[in-house]
Amino acid sequence: MNRQNRLRGFLVCLVGMVIALTAAATVHGQGADFKKNIFPVGKLKPTDSILRVKAGEKAPNFSLPAVDGGRVSLSQYLGKKNVVLSFVPAAWTPVCSDQWPGYQIAKDLFDKNNAILIGITVDNIPTLYSWTRQMSSEKLWFPVASDFYPHGAVASTYGVLRSDGTAERALFVVDKKGIIRYIDVHNINERPPLEDLMHALEEVNKQ
């Protein structure tokens, strides 16, 4: 009898917990607050670093932890796909928060150009996790890598680490042979037009 009561008690609170956790999860799953969480950075110096690589050179390899777990490296795509490296300054900042969601809906264009995208920021994994999760109702189709520690090491190798420790808004196209074919260190305050990147990819595929 006592045993039954205990069991009943346990079941009741188990059900309670499940309901509570489900409610909490539903609330967190909504992205309605995405925009209000964006930090207003104001107008910044358009570029603030000196490139250390050139088009025509071999792209420096890297291996960085990815938001989805595991690591992402440039060399894993060697001989398989063109790679677009998209450095953005920081999570939760205005222009960046629109740039990758745009790439998210342009997957077909990347596919058509036989290209993969690797998104890189100097933020840590938990920050990138929260930020990228709110970009789309679907899972992002491209890997997002964290260049957090040692801080901005990859950005620094490419010469796109700004003096305040953020990265430039920079795009690199690396072909299947691992050669850099296109560089756009963009004005940090503006989003690079998608057509420019697609044009660069088409040029790479022509040869």
């Binding site: 008690g9 009741v12 609170c13 309670g16 309901i19 909490a24 609330v27 309605a32 607050d33 995405f34």
Partner: peptide, 30 residues
């Protein structure tokens, strides 16, 4: 059993707070 119930209540209370704060702080975007 009491402890277990208390934890469940606490989680429920927290979950209840989230939607309220979300609504209050983002009138312009919801």
């Amino acid at each position: 059993v009491i402890l277990c119930a208390a934890v469940a209540l606490l989680i429920l209370a927290c979950a209840g707070l989230y939607p309220r704060s979300a609504l209050v702080s983002s009138p312009a975007y919801a």
